[in-house]
Simulated assay, not measured.
Amino acid sequence: MATLLPTVPYWVFCVSEPVSLVAGFAIAIFQPEQFVALQLPNTESTGLSPSGKLIAWQTGNLFGIMAMMGIAILFATTEAAVVKRYLIALLLGDIGHLTAVWWVMGSDGFFSAHRWNGFTWGNVGITFFLALVRIGTLVGLFGEIKPQPSTVGKVKRK
Rank of each mutant, 00 (worst) to 15 (best):
M105S: 05
E79V: 12
D94T: 06
A131Q: 03
N42L: 12
F128I: 07
Y86G: 07
L132Y: 11
A72H: 14
P50M: 06
V83K: 02
D94C: 09
V83C: 05
I95D: 05
I55P: 00
H114R: 12
A67D: 00
R115I: 11
L92C: 11
F129D: 01
M68T: 14
F111R: 04
A72L: 14
G64S: 02
A81M: 14
R85W: 14
D94K: 06
D108F: 14
S112E: 11
T137F: 00
G70M: 05
W116I: 08
P41M: 08
F63D: 02
T59P: 00
G106W: 10
L48H: 04
W57G: 03
G125H: 09
Y86A: 09
G52N: 10
L74Y: 01
W116N: 09
L130Q: 02
K84N: 13
H97R: 02
V83Y: 07
F35K: 02
L74V: 04
V139N: 04
G140C: 08
M105D: 06
P32G: 04
T120N: 05
L48F: 08
L48I: 04
I65D: 01
G122N: 14
R134L: 09
F75K: 12
V104G: 00
G136T: 06
L92E: 05
Q39Y: 11
H97I: 06
G118I: 10
A56G: 15
G60T: 01
G60R: 00
G118T: 08
N123D: 07
G52R: 00
A76C: 08
F75P: 02
F129W: 05
A72M: 12
G64C: 01
G106Y: 14
W116Q: 06
W102Y: 13
H114L: 11
F128S: 12
A113K: 02
F119N: 14
A56P: 09
L48A: 06
P41C: 05
T46G: 07
